[in-house]
Design a binder for these strands. Sequence first.
DNA 1: TCATCATGTTTTTTATAAAGAACAATATCA
DNA 2: TGATATTGTTCTTTATAAAAAACATGATGA
Lengths: 138, 138
Amino acid sequence: MIGERIKSLREKKGYSITKLADLAGVSKSYLSYIERNMQNNPSLQVMAKIAAPLDSNIEYLLGDESLPKLHENDLLDDEWRSIIQNAVEEGMSKGDFQVLKDLIRSNLWKKNMTERNASINEKKKTSNIIILHIDNDN
Amino acid sequence: MIGERIKSLREKKGYSITKLADLAGVSKSYLSYIERNMQNNPSLQVMAKIAAPLDSNIEYLLGDESLPKLHENDLLDDEWRSIIQNAVEEGMSKGDFQVLKDLIRSNLWKKNMTERNASINEKKKTSNIIILHIDNDN
DNA sequence: TCATCATGTTTTTTATAAAGAACAATATCA
DNA sequence: TGATATTGTTCTTTATAAAAAACATGATGA
């Protein structure tokens, strides 16, 4: 349930119910209800207000209630998310990504190969991967 | 705003407001308000009820309201998530990924270049990206 | 040791979310 | 072409979310 998540995050931060209620701008009585699942139908605004001082978001607080669970607490942080989101919007396929991933796993990572492409060279500072070839015929 | 998302998904399904309201089990008047952003603070239960017949989820409907936006409708689904999760665990950096992303954006995508690497060749079916070179010296 | 404060709970009140009409406007078809 | 059905809207009501207040319990400390 939703209450456990909030309570867990709250205690992790060392906040009392009263403190979190103040930070969030909701009444402590209502927060108390929510944590104990006595009122499990809060509005989006209340959820957002509670999530903020917990450095969380509605999605995470929903937890199993809803399908996905992505959260900084769960390894995949927001920066990653937006990077990937953009890539997908720009047409990256799962297969494309899998190549990169498999590459890393198979430790080609460590091996140096030759050849270089000038147009890509400038990207070097941010990564140790250089992509030379893009195949378009399948 | 939240209204646009719902309306967009609804129309994509070919549902009328009345139809969706029936499927979701909420009043059509309220749904109408929400779509026009005249009432932008629905409860979680209402959100969940609306999301279901749209084959969506609260997260997606929230859209910009909340930080992440991941959804099957946005191409980023659970499969993506686990792929990326694994990659991160295997040491992939954001910079590494950014190279790939920038590459796609700059439309190298469309250009064919030469050279090929036998050890990677077998990956061709799943991707149109072939990685030839991994630089390790920075 | 008793007074003040912080804790979380339960009661009461009030604000508003959400339903249930009734409505106007357009579409459908006999 | 006029009756009936759908569309989405606006008005009215009622159910309940959320605040405010009062409360109980333990902690702090003078």
